[in-house]
Simulated assay, not measured.
Amino acid sequence: MFTGLVQALGTLESLSDGYARIRYRCANYEAIARDLAVGDSVAVDGICLTVETILAQGFVASVSPETLTRSTLGRPSPTPASVNLEGSLRVGSKLGGHFVTGHVDGIGCLQSSVLMDNSWEMTFTAPPSLERQWRDRIARYIVPKGSIAVNGISLTVADCDDDSNWFTVAVIPHTYAETNLRELQPGSWVNLEGDVLGKYVEKFLHHGKPTPNGRDRQLEAISPEFLSEHGYL
């Protein structure tokens, strides 16, 4: 589990034979490296990877075929790519962003990045070849003022169309300066993860408990009492 608050930047130096080699690229990588151990989870551009080897200035993590299919790791950059890094959430740590699992739903594409008075307005859409994936895996979790993880960064959706074919986020100067969002160009791919709480709400709405005849029971009315009973406080 992660928070979507990036702690350091790294470089994806190589990806082969199911392993990704990550090198720290900034001086403040101690937040990641201090307690890092083999078997730990690290979010790499929002992808939860398991550390296999500790290096002097980085680490090696295993990458599954499913991860390559779902994320930007399956679409390598011609040059070493900058990646956002975040260590897993510790018990008692501050939760400043939102719950991010590191299980990427799919990829999006930067449409535009416009400097406003005190933020960057960034618009993301579906890559033309992945519009079906966008609708099936991503679009239904995008709502105005809802949370979304873009390359592992916890952001708030500022606006989206009715079908969520596109969405915009307002990125503050600190986030823009400390993450790889500043390196994106129109057409750049990004990893997207919808809010996990929205996924559980969807589950409640569409899947009632089965009755003896095999049909789904009519779902109870959604009320504050219902949500509290099922863990939404």
Rank of each mutant, 00 (worst) to 15 (best):
I54T: 04
G194D: 06
L184A: 14
G208W: 06
L115M: 05
I107Q: 06
R137K: 07
M122Q: 11
L155Q: 07
P80W: 02
G46L: 14
I54W: 12
V150T: 00
I32E: 03
E229K: 15
A158F: 10
A170I: 01
Q185F: 02
T168A: 10
W189D: 00
D136A: 06
L115F: 02
S164Q: 09
Y19V: 13
M116Q: 14
V190R: 05
S77T: 00
L110Q: 11
L12F: 05
G152E: 09
L130T: 10
L233K: 04
V196G: 08
T125C: 14
I172M: 14
L95M: 13
G208F: 02
T11R: 05
D136H: 04
H103E: 07
K209L: 09
N151Y: 02
I54P: 10
G108T: 07
V63N: 06
D17N: 09
T67R: 07
R34H: 14
T211R: 15
G194Y: 05
F167T: 07
E178L: 03
V60I: 15
L205R: 14
P80C: 05
E13I: 10
G108Q: 01
L197T: 14
V114R: 11
P224I: 15
A158P: 00
Y19M: 04
A8G: 06
R70W: 00
Y176Q: 09
S119E: 13
D45K: 02
K94Y: 00
D117H: 14
D35L: 08
E202S: 09
P78E: 15
A31K: 11
T67I: 13
S129C: 11
F99Q: 06
I107R: 15
L110H: 03
V169C: 06
S228C: 06
T123D: 03
S147G: 07
V83S: 09
T67D: 05
H174F: 04
Y19S: 06
V6Q: 03
C26R: 02
E183H: 02
H98G: 03
G97K: 09
I22R: 11
L12N: 01
G187K: 02
V190T: 10
P210K: 09
N118W: 02
I172E: 03
Y19D: 00
Q133F: 01
G146L: 03
T50P: 02
E220K: 03
R182D: 08
G58A: 14
D136P: 00
P173I: 14
C160K: 09
F124V: 01
I222E: 09
E131A: 02
E121M: 14
A221K: 12
V157L: 05
V51Q: 00
G39T: 05
L181H: 12
A139S: 15
A170W: 05
D195R: 10
H103Y: 04
C160W: 04
A37P: 01
L12Q: 12
F204C: 10
W134M: 07
T72S: 06
P127T: 13
T72R: 02
S82H: 13
Y232Q: 07
P76D: 06
T53Y: 01
L110R: 12
L184Y: 06
A126I: 04
I107N: 05
E13C: 12
G10L: 09
S119V: 00
I148M: 05
H103C: 07
H207R: 05
T3C: 01
E131W: 10
Y232E: 08
